[in-house]
Amino acid sequence: MNDPAPAELDYNWPTCCGCGRQLFESELGRTSCRLCQDRADQALRQLPGPDGLYALLATRLAPGQSGDSVVVSASRTAPLPLRLEPLNLMARGGVVTILQAWQTDWHEQLGWRHPRWTGGLQQQCDEAVKALRINLEWAASSHPAFGDFTQEVTSLVRQCERQITGERKERPISVACHCGAILRITVSTPGKRCGGCDTQYDRGEVLDLPLANRAAA
């Protein structure tokens, strides 16, 4: 069982670089908390394989195909014109490229050789996810940008899910920091740092902030 949060300690107590909450005593020495590590792992596990989110994007290429619409087999060529949103996620520069960029970064941090990938984009996606999950414990414990990694991977998953289910993009809302600065968040925001006073809010704290005045927002 995790140690209780050090609520009575001062603001110099180490915090998670992902969500901003204070680390448990059992997490001291890590850059990120285990909750953020688990969130990143859960997001990664949804992407690979023939039934994963990346493969399912191919079933949403034809216009009008989202949510409960008729699904086109991934083995067939979708009729033109294609939907650009799922296509961009599938193509170079999308999901696979982002995963490979992080894998390369981790190799450089560890002093390893540049990773190599084989096969098509689906196979490369599967390889990158496997490598990232193998090294996830190290990254969550030592990588200074693990919070950025978690946010980027969970954002990719949400983008894929929206294309597959037809769910609308989350609407951002404006909340007010105690210093008066305006923060733009969504209901899925894991945490936020105020650019005005540098206060770091975790997920619960940022969602508890008052809504900003409409004129100020």
Rank of each mutant, 00 (worst) to 15 (best):
G49D: 00
V71T: 15
G93T: 01
W117F: 15
R158I: 09
N88R: 15
S174K: 12
Q37M: 13
C19W: 00
R113G: 15
T97Q: 11
E8H: 11
P144Y: 06
Q22G: 08
N88C: 13
S73N: 11
G204K: 07
C36S: 14
G195A: 05
P14D: 01
E161S: 10
R76I: 10
M90N: 05
A212W: 07
A78M: 01
G191D: 02
P50L: 00
S141N: 12
A128F: 05
Q22A: 12
H107V: 04
Q159L: 14
G119N: 02
R76N: 13
R34V: 06
T59P: 01
Q100A: 08
G119P: 05
S69R: 11
R30T: 03
V72K: 13
W13E: 07
L44T: 08
Q163N: 12
E127K: 10
R133S: 14
L61E: 04
G94Y: 06
D208G: 12
D208T: 09
S32W: 02
H143I: 00
W117S: 06
G111E: 07
S66G: 07
T31L: 07
S188R: 14
L80W: 10
L87R: 12
W13L: 03
R171Q: 14
P172K: 01
L53P: 02
W102H: 10
A101K: 08
E25D: 15
P81H: 03
L211W: 05
I164H: 02
L84C: 07
L89Q: 10
R60T: 03
V153S: 09
R45A: 15
A78I: 01
P115I: 01
A58P: 04
L132M: 09
V70A: 15
M1C: 08
T165I: 01
L87G: 03
L35I: 09
D41I: 05
P115L: 01
N135E: 13
E170T: 06
Y11I: 11
A40Q: 07
P79K: 01
W106P: 07
P48E: 00
Q122F: 05
A217R: 06
H143Q: 09
P50V: 03
Q103I: 08
W112T: 00
Q65N: 15
V175Y: 09
I173Q: 12
D105K: 13
E25F: 15
R116K: 12
